[in-house]
Every structure is written in structure tokens, then in C-alpha cells.
């Protein structure tokens, strides 16, 4: 019993020690497996700041946690469609990125995006596109259109995979139907619903995890996927091709921000400056296989990424970024998703 009390006291003390954040610490909260260990290591060596990386599974988890006031993180990574929400709710601090060292290194294409016009809150982390990949050994026809994914021919029925999250599935469906994202028009959403309901019998699995393996192993022949993940699939199985369809692709960008509750603001700013240096950001891209917004970082890419087709969006392919959807649009998406899976 005494041991138990001691163990309990010990653990509480250990926690308290963790809470008292000493100088020279940085708590990063990022998607799982989305922070390059090489980058963290180099940053620690160069600055002497001790970095701790925790991970979350979705923007929603991050939002729920920051909203509840808990956290203790100094750096978070937020998807573009969530940046406005975090800013509006006062959850991220103004960092005035243009004043930070390294900001001029950013590609002008990615500065001042719609979700953060003055880069007051964020700088880009990685960006990519959502489309689908196809096993070209088994499927030869129709690999130029989203039709293959949404209206699959009978031969590949039961071997098609989709993401597990409503927003990503519906966003790509809206691209196929050439609608704006975040529809609030019920007639249009009815079309989306009909499309997905008709597609459902051909779907083997709705899951955002493990796609690389499903595609590489041939368990699925056609699967909704991100470009960087498709590249990883191709490295395992050369027959996998990431499709840039004629209807266009859905774009996404993840952004680095500092929570309003950050305790190590200076270290956070130092980190942000650090990742705007080409040689540092390249470490991140090498790890995730996604493009970044720092000019000149390509020079430090590993050989396999130089000229990788997945990372080069053809000039004529439209990339549509999804904004933060309104409450109404979110509700409609929820309705479509529930009907799809009832």
C-alpha cells in the first residue's frame, strides 16, 4: 500500500515536472508520422532546444483539445481549411510571419493564401493533392478521369477504395461533378449523394489508413489517395500510377501555427524561421514525400524525389483548395455520409 502511494506521488511529481517547462523546450503537436525525425534532430543539435513531438489523428481532435484550453503545445500543424476556424476562435497566436527571418525564401505562390492573406498566423508546412492511384498492370482504360473512381466499370467492382473521412470523399466527388466545394445547395448535394450511393456497391473499403499497402499489394486496384502516399506506393510497386484527372484535383496545404497558449513562444518562432531554410525544409519533404513552399529546397531532395511525377502537377490540371465549410454545408455533408452508410 505504501508502495502504491509512493508510486502515485511519484507519477504526479513526474507530471508536475513535465508541466514546469524549462527554458529551451519546444512541444510540437502534429499529425502522426508527419514530423521528420531528421529535422527535429538537426534542430536540436543546431539550437540546443529540446523538442518533444506528440501526435493527433485529425484536425478535429486538435480543435477539441485547443478549445478545451488544455494543451501546452508550442507548434501545431493545421490544414488550410481549418486555419480560419482556429484564427476566428482565437486559438492561434499572431506571429506576423513576414517579419521572421527566412520568410523571403517562401515561394510567392504560397504566401498570402486565402485562408491567411497576410501570413499573420501561419507559414506553409507541406502541401499536396488528393486524387486517386491506379494499378496499371490490371487497369489500362480510363486512367485520365475521376470517372474510373466514381463510376468504376464492372471489372474492378469490389476492388475500389475510398478515404474514411466524409469531407475528403465529398470534396473529390464535388470536383468530379464540377461543383464548388462546401455546397449548400440541396439539389447539388442530392447529386453528390446519388453518385456516392451508386458507387458504394463497388467499394471494398472506406479507410484513410493503410492505403499504401493496399495499393502496393494489389488488394485494391483503384484507391483515393494523396500524391505523396501514391509515390510511396509506387516505390513498392512500380505499376502504381497517381492520376491527375482532367476534372482536376483537390489541393490541400498544412500550415505551421503557434497556439495562443504556447509557453515557449520564442522557441516556436525560432523553429518557424528554421524550417523556412531550404536545407531544413528538404529534410521534412524527404521524409513525407510531399512538396513544400520553400524555394531552393528541391536541391536538397533525395534522388528518388527529383522529378517524381506525383509531385509535379501538370499545368492544365485544376487544383481546387477546400475552404472552411459553413455550418450548413457541414450538416449537408453529414446527412449524405449517414445516408451512404446507414
Amino acid at each position: 500500500m505504501k508502495t502504491a502511494v509512493r508510486a502515485f506521488a511519484f507519477s504526479l511529481a513526474a507530471c508536475a515536472a513535465g508541466a514546469a517547462q524549462a527554458e529551451g523546450e519546444l512541444f510540437i503537436y502534429n499529425w502522426s508520422d508527419y514530423t521528420a525525425p531528421e529535422l527535429v534532430e538537426k534542430f536540436q543539435k543546431d539550437t540546443g532546444i529540446k523538442v518533444t513531438v506528440d501526435s493527433y489523428d485529425s484536425n478535429e481532435t486538435l480543435l477539441a483539445k485547443l478549445k478545451s484550453g488544455s494543451a501546452g503545445y508550442d507548434i501545431i500543424v493545421v490544414s488550410s481549411d481549418f486555419v480560419e476556424i482556429f484564427a476566428k476562435e482565437g486559438l492561434i497566436a499572431e506571429i506576423d510571419a513576414p517579419t521572421l527571418a527566412g520568410f523571403p525564401n517562401l515561394d510567392k505562390r504560397w504566401t498570402g493564401p486565402v485562408w491567411d492573406p497576410d501570413n499573420a498566423y501561419t507559414v506553409p508546412w507541406n502541401w499536396g493533392t488528393t486524387s486517386y492511384s491506379v494499378n496499371t498492370d490490371k487497369v489500362k482504360e480510363g486512367t485520365d478521369s475521376l470517372k474510373l473512381l466514381f463510376e468504376p466499370p464492372a471489372e474492378i467492382a469490389g476492388q475500389v477504395g475510398m478515404f474514411g473521412s466524409p469531407s475528403e470523399v465529398i470534396a473529390l466527388a464535388q470536383r468530379y461533378l464540377d461543383m464548388d466545394p462546401c455546397q449548400t445547395d440541396t439539389e447539388n448535394m442530392k447529386k453528390v449523394q446519388d453518385l456516392l450511393l451508386a458507387q458504394a456497391p463497388a467499394i471494398k473499403v472506406y479507410n484513410s489508413d493503410g492505403i499504401i499497402e493496399r495499393q502496393a499489394s494489389g488488394e485494391t486496384l483503384v484507391h483515393q489517395q494523396w500524391n505523396g502516399a501514391a509515390m510511396r506506393s509506387r516505390e513498392l510497386n512500380p505499376a502504381i500510377k497517381y492520376v491527375y484527372p482532367k476534372e482536376g484535383v483537390v489541393g490541400w496545404m498544412d500550415n505551421v501555427a503557434v497556439p495562443a497558449s504556447a509557453k515557449n513562444m520564442n522557441n516556436a518562432l525560432e523553429f518557424i524561421s528554421y524550417i523556412m531554410q531550404p536545407e531544413n525544409m528538404a529534410l521534412q519533404s524527404n521524409f513525407t514525400k510531399y512538396a513544400n513552399a520553400v524555394t531552393g529546397s528541391e536541391a536538397f531532395f533525395e534522388a528518388s524525389m527529383q522529378g517524381a511525377p506525383e509531385l509535379i502537377t501538370p499545368e492544365d490540371v485544376k487544383v481546387v483548395f477546400t475552404p472552411a465549410c459553413s455550418e450548413e454545408a457541414t450538416q449537408l455533408m453529414d446527412r449524405v455520409w449517414t445516408r451512404l452508410k446507414r
Binding site: T61, Q331, M333
Partner: peptide
């Protein structure tokens, strides 16, 4: 199950996350 059909657990989870209800 491949996430093809909703169960109570996933329904509740969904409402607290992406459906924001």
C-alpha cells in the same frame, strides 16, 4: 468492416469530429 456501415460508436464519434454536431 471497411467502414462501410455506421455503428453507434462511429456515429457518435463522427458527430463529435467531422460533423461538428
Amino acid at each position: 468492416g471497411g467502414g462501410k456501415k455506421l455503428m453507434i460508436g462511429s456515429l457518435i464519434q463522427l458527430q463529435f469530429t467531422s460533423s461538428r454536431n
